[in-house]
């Protein structure tokens, strides 16, 4: 009997895991954005002295993991599992990082939903008593993602209005069975939703149905309302996706207009920084969660936050073959005081 399950998709932890250390590393453009003060390291050069953008991304993830463990006042030996993923083919950034960290590793592919996906799994491992400490991490790099999913950097193509800007950065979270918060109290892992959107330059629109589905399920399973949260934040739906979520949730009787935002909107000044519909990428929700949200929760600005990273699970090949973009969203509830 799965006693920790409530409703159809949600899990309520009996021993809520605590976040005991976080880290966020971002590239220069993100460091120029509105959240600049919240990041642990802002790179001046987005290759970080490496020979390729892929190597730079792996280095960011590795340093982010080490820094999060250090910030938790632990050493790598105290961590039992590394749970991570990224956007590159065969999740190479994460696997090369795991090679350096040298602890048991679960590699995930959840595209931009990886941050909360890894936290869902990490939290279940802790609550289940399978580990005392785990570290969850993810990374993305504008230039490594761009060459895999879109065009070469020096190619003179215009970006569509609906397109989003992949965040260069890495974030890591150390979860522990012991700690004094913020705690992960509930998780609602999401289902794939695919409404046949084939335009890979409109990720927000492709992922919005998954976000709406997860939100509705979360509220239904837990009995919460949006007003029970100080902040509800999605991963990288951007301006278009956010508008759809607010609109659709209103039709279902949930008012999100007051306390709902999106990491992709928070991280850049979309007008000043010319990021069109906003930020995206694994690192988008990772650095906003581990930088801004964690630090503001520690200060007590927010006591109850719903974080929901969103992922577009297509590939360059599926796009060329005209296949649609499957979307997913995983929600986690962060609380300062578990009830």
């Amino acid at each position: 009997m799965a006693v920790k399950r409530i409703g159809k998709q949600t899990i309520k932890f009996h021993n809520p895991p605590s976040i005991i250390g976080t880290s966020s590393i971002v590239g220069p453009k993100e460091g120029d954005g509105p959240l600049r003060g919240y990041f642990d390291i802002v790179l001046e050069d987005d290759t970080w002295g490496q020979k390729s953008f892929e190597k730079a991304e792996a280095k960011m993830q590795e340093e982010a993991i080490k820094l999060a463990i250090k910030n938790a006042n632990l050493s790598v030996d105290n961590i039992q599992f590394l749970i991570s993923g990224d956007l590159l083919n065969q999740i190479i950034s994460s696997s090369y990082t795991a090679r350096q960290i040298g602890i048991p590793y679960f590699g995930l592919y959840g595209a931009c939903s990886t941050m909360t996906e890894s936290l869902c799994i990490g939290a279940m491992i802790i609550d289940g008593g399978f580990a005392d400490n785990v570290v969850c991490a993810t990374s993305s790099h504008f230039s490594s993602a761009e060459r895999q999913f879109r065009f070469p950097l020096e190619y003179g193509a215009q970006r569509k209005f609906s397109s989003q800007w992949t965040v260069t950065g890495a974030g890591a979270t150390v979860l522990s069975a012991n700690g004094n918060g913020p705690y992960i109290t509930y998780i609602t892992p999401g289902r794939i939703k695919d409404y046949g959107v084939t335009d890979a330059s409109n990720m927000g629109g492709a992922m919005a149905p998954a976000a709406i589905d997860t939100l509705l399920q979360h509220f239904e399973d837990t009995g919460f309302t949006p007003q029970d949260y100080d902040l509800i934040v999605s991963g990288d739906l951007g301006l278009i996706g956010r508008r759809i979520v607010i609109d659709m949730m209103k039709k279902k009787g949930y008012d999100l207009s007051e306390n709902y935002t999106d990491c992709g909107i928070k991280i850049f000044d979309v007008v000043e920084q010319d990021t069109h519909a906003g930020g995206s990428g694994c690192a988008c929700s990772a650095v906003v969660l581990n930088g801004y949200i964690y630090k503001e929760m520690k200060k007590g600005t927010f006591n109850r936050v719903l974080v929901m990273s969103t992922g577009a699970l297509h590939s360059p090949i599926s796009t060329l073959q005209g296949e649609s973009v499957p979307g997913i969203a995983h929600a986690i509830t962060l609380e300062n005081l578990p009830r």
Binding site: G196, V197, N202, P209, R243, K252
Partner: peptide, 21 residues
């Protein structure tokens, strides 16, 4: 959302994207 067909959603989405200048 559930009662929307793929086509209806795609039409809806089209209206949400600002027209290019």
């Amino acid at each position: 959302m559930d009662n929307m067909t793929n086509k209806e959603y795609q039409e809806y989405l089209k209206r949400k994207i600002p027209k290019p200048d």
